[in-house]
Design a protein around this nucleic acid. Structure first.
Length: 816
RNA sequence: GCGGAUGUGGCGGAACUGGCAGACGCGCUGGAUUUAGGUUCCAGUUCCCGAAAGGGAGUGCAGGUUCAAGUCCUGUCAUCCGCACCA
């Protein structure tokens, strides 16, 4: 009879079919006394199709969640292991052509397929934005922020992607281009926009990074620190000669202010417009600033013809406009201290502005001429009453003096800016406000939520929101005065959805509140969040902010969303990052179709440790398919050798003992990997060794050992290869789900090797080896080592200087 | 420039607390099965010398500590990632 062959397509489709409507697989019971474990995968952006980089994310999270479940935890793992998308499921996403088609025709289908959540997974956050229930709570949160002045509207220069025809947040601008269109330069436009005041939480976001130390990757924390960009200094008002105006400048080095020989405004600074005649030149500078690589621009400036007054010295210094001064940082104006700042030095040298040193090195004299700026701390000199101080003392005293005399103060500046959430897109949660000519901006009352999107929308694809052309949507009565008013046509950034989606998972069907706080208290903070590092300063900072806001609103108690974060490495192909432009993106569909989901995910766990980059090769996946086939054939052909009832146990064979030893060693190894480092590559390697051992000893195995080995092998593979293990489990006549079984335990006694192999070295070089009983004492080891033939040959005519004995491990004889 | 990481066979990687460098897989070589190809099974595979036994070298590079270093220390080189006229 031909042997049963492993057919991944047949097996995976069969189980997928059986499982897809089984809600019990996902049942969550917070009242259970089991310990809780919340695993969350940080899902990819809705770029259309899933690719194998995303699959890696699922493979890691799934394996961990299933393991935890088998170890007796109550697990909340919303992505679930069947969500990786067998071909049929993914088709709906792939065929997406246009937001409207997709949203309106496929939403019902998508909901059916993912009905376990009342809104969908993050990888389709667009769906979330089409779900009225999710709109409702997004809008509810927005209104609470509006009440607390955490949401506000202002006219601002914003990043505009011509391709998306919408506004982008700073975090969404990558190398001057849109994060979704890597080759489309972002333009600057001045628009009336909604912002969320993330800066109000800048200090807390920065401070609480400390609580994440060691639990989140250093790289992510470093990026966040950098992004928040706190710097301490002082804000000092320079007067304007011949007017009452003032120019506040921010500096971290007030101690150098006596060396200030100019004040330089950013081109986009409001005063620039007033003080400069050459509007065209200023315009060019603003454009160049947003377009080119900042480091590359040659410093340029225009003298305004006006003068500023240094409030400390009373000195008159020229006011310039400089293309290297950014409006977005500090106050948008600087004092130029060429002697102590390299950028100022370059600028002032170019335009012949005076250079005046006022800080001398701790071990030297004040420089008379400078090759470049002296930027270190030192001792002040020629700085009036503050002369002779260290830079640190001078900074403190001078800032205090400015405060006392009303021309400045100690100040902290952040690089992070408020989060612009307005989008001129169709999809996205409508911003729940109404513009009334009489009352101004009026919030939509809570009981009228959700404001939902209209269906009949013409897509122009350009310019303003398509919603503006839908009168039924736009024209409303003002909630306050009842007169004619217009709805806000902007929708929210979809990052709003992803900022709190994982809370809703805990209470997805709640229609009275975003979620029940008791459920949140049970599950939060998330024990383990897993995802790609590309979210470091986008989603991961927004969701931290959102959590803190929710805490202040009083709907959650936790300060941080995720206790632990794991960032998996990228999947690369032929040494290069997968990207659409290179055409080397491998879709999950191709993978599941050709090799199966089990093999695909298992390869990604096997080929490299999860935090490292992974090079994808077809031959590598084929190796895993081969391995799964090897397991499948071994299990299926040995099922009829399982013990019959009432059968007397046979005596253990030598093969039995070998297999049992390996089996228990491997269980120990895999358990350890799950509990500590998640190096699933070594776990899987160990399971492969076990299978090799099973093949080598197959003929000798007795029924009882076959039973134990098959059961534990299948259970151990369960977290890595859900479908094929479930199929084998059933064929073995076992009931229930593999990942609801208890995780196999190991027996140290059985795992122990028959004897200790002791290596014998002469002068640290391996020369021989011997097998001894465990615990053989030092004297005996030494004697037996000296008696060894090969060792004796190396000892001939030499003097023994020293002998190092490590019991059960080695004997090293040092000779001269 | 600042910050984070990484350097081990032909390749992906293993060696977790200093103690057999190269587990496991890919690729390659040979054998068995097969009409053949494929599949499957078995064996070999760091490099150099050697028919073999065996010997020598070897974890980016240079030093150091140690009976013993891929692992610890000092220096150095290279690569990757993130941030960057941030005042």
């Amino acid at each position: 009879m031909p042997e049963k062959q492993y057919d991944h397509r047949e097996i995976e489709l069969k189980w997928h079919e059986r499982w897809k409507d089984d809600d019990s697989l996902y049942s969550i019971d917070p009242s259970s006394s089991r310990p809780k474990y919340y695993v969350l995968e940080m899902l990819p952006y809705p770029s259309g199709t899933l690719h194998i980089g995303h699959l890696r994310n699922y493979a890691i999270g799934d394996a961990l969640a299933r393991y935890k479940w088998m170890r007796g935890f109550n697990v909340l793992h919303p992505m679930g292991w069947d969500a990786f998308g067998l071909p049929a499921e993914n088709a709906a996403i792939q065929n997406k052509r246009h937001p409207r088609d997709w949203t309106l025709t496929n939403i019902a289908e998508m909901k059916r397929q993912h009905k376990r959540m009342s809104f969908s997974y993050d990888w389709n956050r667009e769906i979330a934005t089409c779900e009225p229930e999710y709109y409702r709570w997004n809008q509810w949160f927005f209104l609470r922020m509006l009440e607390r002045c955490l949401a506000y509207r202002k006219n601002a220069l914003v990043n505009w992607c011509p391709e998306c025809a919408t506004v982008l947040a700073n975090e969404q601008v990558v190398d001057g281009c849109c994060w979704r269109h890597e080759s489309t330069p972002v333009e600057q436009r001045e628009l009336e926009q909604w912002f969320l005041r993330i800066t109000a939480y800048a200090d807390e976001l920065l401070r609480d990074i400390e609580t994440l130390e060691g639990r989140w990757p250093d790289r992510v924390l470093a990026m966040q620190r950098n992004w928040i960009g706190r710097s301490e200094g002082a804000e000092i008002d320079f007067g304007i000669d011949g007017s009452n105006g003032r120019i506040p400048v921010f500096t971290t080095r007030v101690d150098t202010i006596y060396g200030a020989t100019a004040v330089i405004l950013a081109p986009a600074h409001p005063l620039t417009r007033e003080l400069t005649a050459d509007v065209a030149a200023v315009r060019r500078m603003i454009d160049a600033q947003s377009r080119s690589d900042p480091g590359e621009i040659e410093k340029e400036g225009i003298f305004t013809g006006r003068w500023a007054i240094n409030p400390y010295s009373g000195e008159r210094v020229p006011i310039w406009v400089g293309n290297f001064v950014l409006m977005g940082y500090g106050t948008g104006a600087i004092m130029a201290v060429p002697a102590h700042d390299q950028r100022d030095f370059e600028f002032c040298t170019k335009y012949g502005i005076a250079i005046r040193p006022v800080i001398r090195p701790l071990d030297g004299a004040l420089a008379s001429t400078l090759e470049c700026a002296f930027e270190d701390y030192g001792i002040t000199e020629n700085t009036g009453r503050w002369s002779g101080l260290t830079s640190e003392d001078a900074r403190r005293q001078m800032a205090a003096y400015a405060g006392e005399n009303g021309f400045g103060k100690a100040a902290v500046t952040y690089r992070i800016k408020d989060w612009g959430v307005s989008r001129q897109r169709y999809w996205g949660t409508p911003i729940p406000v109404i513009h009334c000519e009489r009352c101004g901006v009026v919030p939509v009352p809570d009981e009228e939520l959700p404001v939902v999107l209209p269906y009949n929308v013409e897509f122009t694809g350009r310019g303003r929101s398509p919603l503006e052309n839908v009168p039924e949507f736009m024209n409303v009565a003002c909630p306050k005065c009842g007169s004619r008013a217009r709805r806000e046509s902007d929708t929210m950034d979809t990052f709003v959805d992803s900022s709190w989606y994982f809370y809703r998972y805990c209470d997805a069907h709640n229609d009275r509140a975003p979620f029940d706080i008791q459920k949140i208290d049970y599950w939060f903070p998330i024990d383990q969040y897993i995802g790609g590092v590309e979210h470091a300063i986008l989603h991961l900072i927004y969701s931290r902010f959102w959590t803190k806001v929710m805490r202040d609103i009083g709907v959650v108690h936790n300060d941080e969303p995720a206790a632990r974060l794991f960032t998996q490495g990228m999947v690369i192909k032929d040494g290069a990052k997968m990207s659409k432009s290179k055409g080397n993106v491998i879709s999950v569909d191709t993978m599941t179709e050709r090799y199966g989901g089990d093999a695909g995910r298992m390869f990604e766990l096997f080929a490299a440790p999860p935090e490292k980059e992974l090079d994808f090769t077809d031959t590598g996946v084929e190796g895993i398919v081969r391995f799964l086939g090897r397991v499948y054939r071994f299990v299926t052909r040995n099922i009829d050798r399982l013990p019959k009832p009432a059968e007397a146990p046979a005596e253990r064979s030598a093969g039995d003992r070998r297999v049992l030893r390996k089996l228990h060693q491997v269980i120990r190894k895999v358990t350890e990997d799950f509990e500590t480092r998640w190096h699933f590559n070594t776990s899987i390697a160990a399971i492969m060794e076990l299978v090799n051992e099973l093949y080598a000893c197959e003929a000798e195995l007795t029924p009882a050992v076959i039973a134990e080995a098959l059961e534990k092998l299948v259970l151990m593979l369960g977290p890595f290869a859900p479908y094929v293990t479930q199929d084998m489990w059933e064929q073995m006549g076992r009931d229930g789900l593999v990942f609801r079984q208890e995780w196999p335990s190991f027996d140290e006694e059985l795992a122990r090797e028959a004897g200790a192999e002791v290596i014998l070295q002469v002068n640290g070089k391996l020369r021989s080896r011997m097998v001894v009983d465990f615990g053989t004492d030092r004297d005996q080891l030494e004697a037996r080592a000296k008696a060894d033939d090969k060792i004796q040959a190396f000892l001939q005519g030499k003097e023994i200087v020293r002998i190092v004995v490590v019991p059960d491990k080695l004997v090293n004889i040092v000779v001269k």
